[in-house]
Design a protein around this nucleic acid. Structure first.
Lengths: 183, 183
DNA sequence: ACGGACATGTAAGCAGTTACATGATTGC
DNA sequence: GCAATCATGTAACTGCTTACATGTCCGT
């Protein structure tokens, strides 16, 4: 089973409701989907061109003074492809958790190395939780209740909160257990 | 910052305590780290050769009848590299959650499409939890309490359980919320 | 005799990232 | 005047996966 490029669907989804430029897609992703879907800058522009060649989007260039801006609009073919993908069940994603791998090999190092790793991660997770809270107050709060993005953004965010709490609990417990063992 | 290949560390870690063949590393990963660290079959053998060329492992071929088996042993240089990595803080890993992306674009499709997706995922998560339980009873239970793998395996597994429970809670709540909304 | 596990690899290709490159506009 | 942001792209590289390829040994 061949793996298919999903950047295209992220882009098509962003264009579904309104036309946007490559840059504004990047910005939108940066502030809305960054916690569960990341694209590197370099992947958007080539994919937009590819989608245009395939007839999934059309573009029109507009200028404000000397600055150019290419607006992309999704076509019916693009909408069809996107909606087809929306019906598909996500393929199992391969996960790689470097911290768990290190913990798994924990027998090779001193306990305090592991504890340091776990504590470092704990700080990161706290920061992530703060990030979620900021999304909640700064972005979601400003969206009208009637906008479907409000509901779906809230649900996606809740996923982040749930897993963040799970991770915090787990880290705390791990640290406690490792602390207790004199090594 | 350049991304570095971590397959090498997974391999070095597996070889740290005892020499193994490529095939048995694959098997070991399949049954012990598969839930948080996956390697495709094709990546192990070339990496072992590369590590050998770098002097991080040595190999000796032994034959049982006509079947050959190449055992790899970690060198001091290999151990040094591995231990250095153990001290490093993991880089932030880019995450991509296709289900959340679809949910985020939920405004483009009927509610029942989303509910179907969520329920499908719920089934998968239940299966994963079963998998964890099997690891717990079949593998961990058979390891001596004195073996450090017992402790670290248990902690890694606990991570799986925590996140699995978080995911189940979240999915259940999402489904409930979407069910309530008549669309 | 045959299927499944054992055992080891190669080749091709796509996806994704990093680094590089360029220039305009806005706000301080 | 300068920094930050706006705006768009290319080239090179690495990593990883898929598909392919080959042969042995063991249990039934």
């Amino acid at each position: 089973m061949k793996k298919i490029n999903k950047t295209r669907f992220a882009i098509l989804g962003m264009l579904f409701k309104s036309a946007k430029s490559g840059y504004s897609i990047l910005q939108l992703m940066q502030k809305s989907t960054v916690y569960f879907w990341q694209e590197s800058d370099a992947s958007i522009y080539p994919m937009l061109k590819k989608l245009e060649k395939e007839g999934k989007v059309t573009s029109k260039t507009e200028s404000t003074g000397k600055r150019e801006r290419t607006l992309f609009e999704i076509t019916d073919a693009g909408k069809a492809e996107f909606l087809e993908w929306m019906e598909l069940q996500p393929e199992p994603e391969s996960h790689r958790n470097e911290l768990l791998l290190k913990l798994f090999f924990g027998g090779t190092v001193a306990r305090k190395t592991l504890i340091k790793q776990l504590q470092h991660r704990l700080q990161k997770v706290y920061a992530t939780r703060e990030g979620f809270r900021r999304v909640e107050t700064d972005i979601l709060a400003s969206i009208s209740n009637k906008d479907p993005y409000k509901l779906f953004g809230t649900l996606a965010l809740k996923n982040g909160f749930f897993h963040t709490e799970a991770e915090i609990e787990w880290l705390t417990e791990c640290i406690k257990i490792l602390d207790k063992i004199k090594s």
